[in-house]
């Protein structure tokens, strides 16, 4: 540090500083917008070819041979990144079976290897968010209380207080997050699939994303009060109060009122 301090009045100092600043900005930018370079293992040329073939066979009908999209049918996939492909395909949302209000999650028809290859090929078309590394989605590294505050401000209005899902306009819906994996949750935030807004790393920082994942993970312990009744709030509580509570008590009244034989 002394060496730096001694040279800080050097005439090249501004240039070096500027270069350093640019470098830092570049690095930070790269960190905030995860590029394909961050993928777990760099894809080989074979992966890209295999991915391209899979794409042509399964996706190109709608998205076009070069993933440029077809207006009114399917969006362009250039620049959506590996995360988008991994999210859509590994939850079974893509390939789409039939046009509906939105693509539902379905059984997955590809192997992990195939999904990785398709993701790699799409990622090679343009820079976009990568599939997150395991430690980026590790719930143990997140703060569930922070996650609760972030989740209820940014997510709960659509997905419900504990991620049980909810309705959107015209038959669309925010899905239940109960079975979503940490990786899927992360990918959904950075890519903004379908109706969902994008939560890039400036809006919700990577640490905050882990906090949210930790909060959702904490829901797996269930409710301290007993069965959750679907966690959909007062409607299911009211339904059970009538069916079970009032039902049982009217049953008791009928028993009390009936004559003994």
């Amino acid at each position: 540090m002394k060496a730096i301090a001694a040279r800080r009045h050097h005439r090249f100092a501004p240039v070096v500083l500027l270069a350093l600043a640019l470098l830092t900005t570049g690095v930070l930018y790269a960190a905030f917008t995860p590029g394909p370079a961050q993928a777990a293992s760099a894809p080989t040329q074979d992966d890209l070819t295999a991915g391209n073939n899979l794409f042509r066979a399964n996706c190109a009908t709608c998205h076009g041979m070069n993933a440029q999209g077809r207006p009114g049918v399917a969006p362009s996939l250039i620049g959506v990144g590996a995360a988008a492909v991994d999210f859509q395909v590994s939850t079974g949302r893509m390939p789409l079976m039939n046009q509906g209000a939105q693509a539902p999650a379905k059984p997955v028809i590809f192997t992990e290897e195939q999904i990785r290859q398709m993701a790699a090929w799409v990622a090679s078309l343009g820079p976009g968010p990568a599939v997150p590394a395991p430690e980026e989605v590790d719930p143990a590294k997140g703060d569930a209380a922070q996650g609760m505050e972030l989740f209820r401000t940014n997510c709960a209005m659509c997905h419900g207080a504990v991620g049980q899902g909810g309705a959107l306009t015209n038959g669309k819906y925010a899905p239940n997050l109960g079975k979503a994996s940490p990786t899927t949750i992360y990918e959904a935030m950075v890519t903004g699939p379908q109706s969902m807004p994008v939560f890039n790393n400036a809006t919700i920082t990577p640490q905050e994303k882990r906090d949210i994942i930790a909060y959702l993970q904490a829901q797996k312990a269930g409710s301290p009060g007993g069965v959750t009744l679907g966690s959909i709030g007062p409607v299911s509580e009211g339904l059970w109060a009538w069916l079970l509570g009032i039902g049982a008590l009217i049953g008791a009244a009928v028993w009390i009122g009936a004559k003994s034989s």
């Binding site: 209005m157 659509c158 909810g166 959107l168 306009t169 669309k172 925010a174 903004g192 379908q194 109706s195 969902m196 807004p197 994008v198």
Partner: peptide
């Protein structure tokens, strides 16, 4: 109510309380 259900594709903003869009 806080109106906050934003659909980025349709640009619709939905209120979860009484569904004003």
């Amino acid at each position: 109510c806080p109106v906050a259900l934003y659909e980025q594709r349709t640009h619709h903003l939905l209120c979860p309380c009484h569904q004003s869009t």
